[in-house]
Amino acid sequence: MTPDAQSPTSPPTSDPSMRRPPGGTIETSGDAPASVRLNGSTHRITPGLTVAALLDRLGQAGRPCAVEVNGSLVPFRHRQERILLDGDRIEIVTLVGGG
């Protein structure tokens, strides 16, 4: 899986992980892919990908799901802003049958 970078649409915030970099396209020096844990497996993604863009690449955009990064919920309304970084642990969950 090698999703492309995508520029975030949100204004800058004080949270470094949610800051919009100048120029729009997000790349680290040397284009080294970021290594993330996604639902327990290691994946390489383009650094600076947003949660929303990741879901889009995964074909999840139209399916109800919830996302957590490094143990904290990324609320639905913040997916366009939340940028994924090297080493992030990402969980994408849905609802299944249970008691």
Partner: peptide
């Protein structure tokens, strides 16, 4: 009641529980 579990990202084509429940009538208790 329903449970929260990891999405099967490589098998995302199948129907999900949410397709099977009438959410207009049922209140979900996660």
């Amino acid at each position: 009641t329903v449970a929260v579990r990891r999405e099967r990202l490589l098998d995302a084509e199948g129907r999900s529980l949410l397709d099977e429940l009438d959410l207009t009538r049922l209140t979900v208790l996660p």
